[in-house]
Amino acid sequence: MIDVELRGDEWLARATELKESGWWLSDLCGLDRRDLGFADRFGVVTQFLHRERRERQIVHIAAAGEPPTVPSICSLWSGANFFEREAFDLFGIHFEGHPNLTRIMMPDEWEGHPLRKDYGVGKVEVDFVPQPFLQIQGLGQSPNSKEAMEKVDDFGQTEDGQRRGDSW
């Protein structure tokens, strides 16, 4: 289904060429091709728009290596910044030369890359920690402080069996 794909080292030259001939970067996203039968598991899919010719094209780049790496095109289009951060965050594809390659959607301390195919939906359990509710004992004590949280068990109840917040 993907006819032509570029290697990482060809990508920057090709992108420069595209920019010079008037193509505009419309979209960039990662793709996990685990079940699609490719030599390299990860790829980057970019879409370009030519306003004068009213044409669109899709360019595929293979992200080889561990971690998968492709060169960044932030120097050509500043708009690629967020796209590349997103692909890094959700697929773990590294972009060489990116000015600030950090997580963008997930929290900074998050482990794993959610859009990878081996990261199933619902695989990470979400703890629904009952929030202590309107229980400010002393002045300046936060109801969400660690001490306040420890007094509540998994069902949101205190030792004497009272549900927090009932008094409210």
């Binding site: 289904m1 993907i2 419309s26 899919v45 728009l49």
Partner: peptide, 17 residues
Amino acid sequence: GESSATVESPRGELGCY
């Protein structure tokens, strides 16, 4: 296969791949 489409949303170019 793969396909992409774009429409003009109130905020600009909305694409789907």
